[in-house]
Write a protein that binds this DNA or RNA. Structure first.
Length: 119
DNA sequence: CGATTGACACCAA
DNA sequence: ATTGGTGCCAATC
């Protein structure tokens, strides 16, 4: 069943939307920057999503940013966490298969907001 | 204000 | 299939 989130119009900032989507990522699932950007209407603004995440660590430390990886399912931003192993460790703890900072079952663990969520 | 950087993605060769 | 180059938008220097 679709969550039907519907990002409130109160979210005026692009970053807020990113935070919202990331916060809605179910445990054991992951998504990509491009998917989030696409969901927000800017499929080419993946870098922006990454930028938002970078700040999210300081602004929203509770945000499950470890569930956001690049298009390849690679834990590109693991170095931005408390420790370089925090990201992979959390993903593994959630049931994901992460080897060498690479999500093995990325295909089945992939969670596309554009598909799972209703705009 | 101009140039460079950044947790990326996509197209072309 | 792999590698290289270009585009995205905002922030920081």
């Amino acid at each position: 069943m679709k969550s039907t989130i519907k990002i409130s119009e109160k979210n005026k900032d692009f970053f807020e939307k990113v935070y919202q989507v990331v916060a809605l990522i179910p445990e054991g699932k992951v998504t990509s920057y491009g998917a989030i950007g696409k969901y927000l209407g800017s499929p080419r603004s993946a870098r922006m999503v990454g930028w938002a995440m970078n700040h999210s660590v300081k602004t929203n430390p509770n945000l499950p940013a470890h569930r956001v990886v690049n298009r390849n399912g690679l834990l590109s931003g693991k170095m931005h966490f408390e420790t370089a192993s925090t990201m992979a460790d959390k993903l593994i703890a959630e049931g994901l298969l992460v080897i060498d900072d690479q999500i093995q079952n990325f295909s089945e663990a992939f969670w596309d907001p554009s598909l799972e969520l209703e705009l």
